[in-house]
Design a protein around this nucleic acid. Structure first.
Lengths: 376, 376
DNA sequence: TTTGTTCGTATGGTCTACTAACAAACGTGA
DNA sequence: TCACGTTTGTTAGTAGACCATACGAACAAA
């Protein structure tokens, strides 16, 4: 996974042959990861490298226990039967952690395909600051005991603003400010750790496991409203790592409710799950529909400008299905259609995530795969 | 210049040592281009490559006439005096062409620093289709005769949707549909040609010559309203190469004028130069201010969502100064501030371009520099 | 003159991926 | 059955890219 952040514009780092080598190693892994078992000759054809080079690369990956020979091809055809290879899918496991819920931190042990092998969670008990960091540590320790293979790394999706080095610059709900979560966990557990914003992590999950487009936006609705942007297959971080912070953008030109931030008509006042649930409580179905349609319309208003500017082709919603599915989703689609140029965006699809509640956990695992093996 | 487009997500191309080499050659050129004369030892320190390697790279660049020795350092210090190098700034010239104006195509011969050495233009005479392509050819031929050094390449900024290979997918004003402008001009002139959307080209110009940020949006206001986006130093093209097409996004929730596209309240109805000029004609100064402030406010409404989602740090306006400078610009700034979260965007600056009318021509030149030499 | 510094280059070595050639293992058809 | 072509994976040798080391040249300062 490559990120787009506000870093140096111009090429600044030298590039050595060994960098090319590690790129090509990832290329071999990616071929096996996404397309299943292949022979060395297959990989050579798929990547454009020669069979000799592929043999050499594969030998290195086998020595690192990342690839295994799984038998001979049984195709009936002339020529020597090929030796089939695959990623050593049981050799390593990954820990994925989701810190985005208010009440409890959740985590899981994942295999290399992103399947959940074991879960754990820990109540937050309103902890903040260092106490909350300790909760993360406990959760990871607990998960570590549930692993049944060497650990490839630990991925963490955190709320708030997270920089490129995994420092949580600001997460008000957890009372975190410049918490070097990635470095702290690396020191504590001695394994690769990668920390990123929860909405960005969810976006990555949808891309890796949900067959999302290369130009996609994911809106995550919970206590707040956040978004992640995948542009040309790259995750956008923003000039201050605050991309996707759309919760406090004012939508429309006709007022709205007062927000905790002091403004009127922020996106969160229309869409945050607790607010929507409160509004809907006790209402008859018909009136509920009206409120949900209005919320979807507002989301569409905010998205229209973004969809137009970025020419994204897919908008994915993540959050409570009882709020988002159906009316709200349809109203959003309609609102965007009415407000943008059809010829550019007729291919725009709006849909719910297919990954449900585990989206952040699985995305966190995907981050580790990307960072450590270069596959997605 | 790297682009972000809706292409393959996963690494798909092998990387050979020679790719690293060409990267490092660009690195050496970039060091000289942006920081002026350096010795080989200076370049080695700046790039992290060894003096031996830099000597080798420089020898290749000198053989290609891209770099020259310009004398000895006269620093008073111990040690052998260094041999100063510079990009051979007079050895090549570039042709930049701007097709975005309605009445005439404009172009210029540029040196490697982007300075305009000679200009030419040709009236469009309402030509469309192949006749308009012929006008482009005439203009380039005329400019070619004005060059006084070998041509590095030809850059063209075209209105409409332009894909990664320089095919103008759609430019209604010129009656172009799937016009392979880049391939046609390459065949005609036998020199490297690069074609891109005018707003994107202007964005590149501002980045190269105007000291713009790595996360920046440029809004180009003329007969229509278009935008270019620079994210993490990369130009965004969009899933269908239609990024920045914000002219027909509806802003606000309170109606607006009827647009040619059939919708009400599109950004163009508020901001397109001809419409604004028409509204302002004959009005006293005070009323003009109100209309310009309203236009700026509307631009701010559309930008707020984008600024929030992308966390961009700079918004640059390009277009008629008598409309944009002052009131409109200030109203835009204010509108965005009122509609976004200050803590994420307090570093947002809104300003006019410093490049004036020649922004597309110079950006087109910058594209050629990026594509051919890897410098910006 | 001596000493230490800095520059640019020559030399040899390592790493990467390539081409060419080959043995092994398999169908096919005479 | 056996020669033949095909495909796989390996070995051997080559070209390119960069590095570490070492060296002469050219200078300032003592």
């Amino acid at each position: 996974m490559e990120f787009i952040a506000g870093r140096a514009l111009r090429p600044t780092a030298k590039r050595l042959p060994e960098h090319g080598r590690s790129h090509n190693l990832s290329l071999v892994l990616q071929t096996l990861y996404s397309e299943g078992t292949h022979s060395r000759a297959d990989i050579a054809r798929a990547t454009g490298l020669t069979r000799v080079t592929v043999s050499d690369l594969v030998a290195e990956l086998i020595a690192d226990f990342l690839v295994v020979e799984v038998g001979m091809s049984e195709d009936v055809r002339p020529g020597k039967p090929s030796t089939l290879l695959d990623i050593n899918r049981t050799a390593f496991q990954i820990i994925g952690v989701d810190l985005s819920a208010f009440e409890r931190f959740r985590g899981a042990v994942l295999d290399l395909d992103g399947n959940i092998l074991a879960v754990a969670d820990i109540p937050l008990d309103s902890c903040t600051g260092a106490a909350a960091v300790a909760k993360v540590e406990s959760l990871i320790s607990e998960l570590l005991e549930k692993t049944t293979a060497p650990l490839l790394g630990i991925g963490i999706g955190s709320p708030g603003i997270v920089d490129f080095e995994g420092v949580v610059l600001s997460a008000p709900n957890l009372g975190w400010e410049r918490v070097e979560l990635q470095a702290l966990m690396l020191e504590r557990f001695g394994k690769p750790v990668v920390v990123a914003n929860d909405a960005n992590v969810a976006t990555l999950a949808e891309h890796s496991f949900g067959a999302a487009d290369a130009d996609m936006m994911l809106v995550k609705i919970g206590h707040g409203v956040g978004a992640g942007l995948l542009l040309g297959g790259h995750l956008l971080l923003g000039s201050r790592f605050a991309s996707g912070e759309i919760g406090h953008v004012v939508v429309g030109t006709d007022g709205g409710e007062l927000c905790v931030c002091g403004k009127y008509g922020c996106l969160e006042t229309w869409l945050a799950a607790p607010r929507l649930d409160a509004k809907l409580a006790g209402l008859p179905a018909a009136e509920r529909e009206i409120i949900l349609a209005e919320a979807g319309d507002r989301l569409g208003i905010a998205m229209a400008a973004i969809v137009g500017a970025l020419n994204i082709s897919e908008l994915i919603l993540s959050g409570p299905p009882h709020l988002l599915e159906g009316t709200l989703e349809a109203a959003t689609t309609n609102s965007i259609r009415l407000r943008t140029m059809a010829e550019f965006h007729d291919n725009l699809t709006v849909r719910m995530t297919t990954l449900g509640e585990d989206i952040v956990i699985r995305g966190a695992g995907s981050m580790v795969l990307s960072r450590e093996l270069g596959v997605s």
